[in-house]
């Protein structure tokens, strides 16, 4: 049976997962709700080429594992981000290639016209090699926490769910990562110093 037209408006994520056990169609509602943000997260981590396939893979893992979802342990959204992070882990080489590529491209080689870019973007490009080298130097778990914070907009508790670690560990990972990144950037605030 197809989902009723207004189901996406009235059914909470947890209910969708529960009811999808008997009515698998409903799981498509979650795909439609979260495709764009998971795409954004995975594209940031792995590049956008064919990343829609990886989003699909993440949802397939979620679909096949939905019976094990435990709402007492966190939200559906954080659960999906955790699965997407595991997809990243299966493509570490690709992530490495992306980081290498971004660390080597100097700002002046950017294809964008300078006239179209705002100051913050110019600052980001100027600092890009140092930033990316800093990210490459982070432990994988620290990098996961940082990207979940930046591109998932997840809170510490949600990151803890996604990575299956204590909330306190999330805080220490992010603090450690930010400190290392600031060091890599020369202990300056690139957005203000430009």
């Amino acid at each position: 049976m197809a989902a009723p037209p207004d189901a996406s408006d009235v059914m909470e994520d947890v209910t969708v997962v529960e009811r999808s056990m008997d009515n698998p169609d409903l799981f498509a509602l979650l795909y439609d709700r979260y495709f764009h943000e998971l795409y954004r997260y995975l594209a940031a981590r792995l590049g956008s080429e064919h990343v829609e396939d990886m989003v699909a893979d993440a949802f397939l893992i979620a679909f096949n594992g939905r019976g094990a979802f435990d709402s007492d342990r966190g939200t559906v959204r954080s659960w999906l981000y955790g699965i997407a992070t595991n997809v990243v882990a299966r493509h570490r080489r690709r992530e490495g290639r992306r980081l290498n590529a971004l660390s080597k491209v100097p700002a002046e080689d950017s294809a964008d016209g300078h006239e179209d870019r705002v100051t913050s973007q110019l600052a980001a490009e100027a600092s890009r090699p140092e930033l990316v080298r800093g990210l490459k130097g982070l432990a994988k778990g620290d990098r996961d926490a940082v990207f979940l914070l930046v591109f998932g907009g997840l809170g510490y508790e949600e990151i803890a769910t996604a990575l299956d670690i204590p909330v306190g560990t999330v805080g220490s990972r992010i603090n450690r990562a930010r400190k290392k990144l600031r060091t890599a950037l020369g202990d300056v605030n690139p957005m203000k110093e430009w």
Binding site: F35, H36, A44, E52, V55, F63, L102, S127, V146, L149
Partner: peptide, 28 residues
């Protein structure tokens, strides 16, 4: 600030309608 910098450097364009449809089709 360094987090904002990450967002600016790593953000990719939104998916095209074709990519969105292809991903959905693959999943289904």
């Amino acid at each position: 600030d360094e987090l904002k910098l990450i967002e600016t450097v790593f953000a990719e364009p939104d998916p095209t309608p074709e990519a969105a449809a292809a991903g959905r089709d693959r999943f289904l």
